[in-house]
Amino acid sequence: MTTLNVRVAAVEQVTELVKHFTLVQQNGQPLPRFSGGSHVVVSMNINGRNHRNPYSLMGSPDNTESYHISVRRQEQSRGGSVYMHDQVTVGSELQITYPVNLFAISKLAHKHILVAGGIGITPFMSQIADLNRLGQHYELHYAYRSPEHGAFVEQLREMCGDRLHCYVESEGQRMSFQQLLSQQPLGTHVYTCGPDAMVKTLLLTARDMGWPESHLHSEQFSAPPIGDAFVISLAQSGIDLEVPGDMSMLEAMEEAGLEPPFLCRGGACGRCELEVLACDGALMHNDHYLSDAEKTAGNKIMPCVSRASCQKLVLNI
């Protein structure tokens, strides 16, 4: 996995819960170009343990001087976002992966409808830069809790003009997906990122209105949830490892010095998929990658975010 060593050049408190970090290469070189919708995985050393969280790149892809990520503080998590908020300051050094795009704009689309909820706005900011540059037809619908939680609204208004539509929950403004998706011209694609319920409802509504799957795009990263400890048995290498409650299987394997493949670490890309050979309990799937049928079948698992409630899980690696 190719990585980049970056330094935090600026930190901006955007809203009460959101901080915006500007990252530059430690060696002063330009950063790699990327495409709108890309993310990077940030490595953090928290109490001697390596955490890796995916964050969308929200700067313009034209800007190779610096990368921009925004982190929403999540108190109920294993500490990655809290660490970013409390420990990472100007001058902090971090390691990030090269950008990966799991949320690319469709080049065949004739019109793009972007639907963001809360911190889900971030991937759209780089997408909009690309859409503007390419002269594409789009509209952005952005919902947030209250005026003080509307991160980047001013910047977005500058970028999008009257193509920006804001929905402020505290003021009783609600987005009607039904209305949004009616009467859209053929060749329209819809993209959504935000809270789980919003993403699921939008996709369901679109399907119910006859939109084909190829025109629906969403991105969601999960954080590895905390659970009970269990043991994984790696069939090919003949190793048994304990997975503590606050560690993912992927992290446990890495702690043990193994280098299993990974890409997004948020259950979205499918790169780390492993075959389940046996399990004396139940698999607890937390990813967005496997289909419901695959989850039920129980012979695949994403070690980056999923766990098992069992004594022993045997994996083909």
Binding site: M1, T2, P32, R33, F34, T97, Y98, P99, V100, L263, C269, G270, R271
Partner: peptide, 11 residues
């Protein structure tokens, strides 16, 4: 195909 879909820039 699965491998290539995950091919990374720079690698």
């Amino acid at each position: 195909l699965k491998y290539l879909l995950h091919l990374q820039y720079g690698s």
